[in-house]
Amino acid sequence: MKEMVKSEGLTFTYMEETEEGQTGAEMKKALDGVDLSIRKGQMIVILGHNGSGKSTFAKMLNALLKPTSGSLWVDGIDTSDDEMLWNVRQSAGMIFQNPDNQMIASIVEEDVAFGPENLGVDPPLIRQRVDEALEAVGMAAYAKASPAHLSGGQKQRIAIAGILAMKPDLIVLDEPTAMLDPRGRAEVMKTLQKLNKEDNITIVHITHYMEEAAMADYLYVIDQGKVALSGTPREVFSQVERMKELGLDVPPVTELAYRLQDPVMQEKLKARGIEIPGDILTVEEMVEALCPSN
């Protein structure tokens, strides 16, 4: 499979801006030698506590920020190449945390059309893309509505449609569910999974929610600008102690399973003929372990 994103020694340093608008002293190394590669069609989750550099990484994927040193390729394009800037932004769509602050128009379909309009797509084709994109996120019925009257989850799905209409290969989401209620979160996650599975769009999802991270194909945990852990959710979450060191949680069910690995607990469980593996990710798996007859 082809690589969608590849980085080598990716480093980014925020510079202090002097009054003349020139870059002055170094302020903070947000990313420090990140090497990773994301294959096409994968669903990737990036974890990390606040200030770990994960949002910086997201902005670099969209060429909003350029590497201070090292390189980053998106779909084979070097993001530091100014000539290809708009190609990078077209193929790597970006969704931000606050749904209100990324909507330009006061009508849903006009907002979705904003991206393709910027790309200079033919008017009839824009119409078609907008309708398809709204259909894909299940918001076709709201095409003429005003975003002000929609819920957070719906607004975020409109934002996703706005990116879809630009026909990206990769969607980068920077904590898209942080401001949503549980129902909105579920809506957005369902949409993302559908896009990933059915339309084969690569997804890079930055989140704080471990339940969402558990749905990924592959996880990267970033700490102080470096990749601290990586692997499938099962591999990463089974390292409960290491995750805690990094200031992160694991899904509650995983933590429960982990605690049950204690020899005393194991003894008690064994006495009842129950065996619980240490790498449980979902509630369903726990149910299965407890009542195998199901």
Partner: peptide, 9 residues
């Protein structure tokens, strides 16, 4: 930022 990310120029 969001407008730039959506190729507004």
């Amino acid at each position: 930022t969001a407008m730039e990310a959506r190729c507004y120029r």
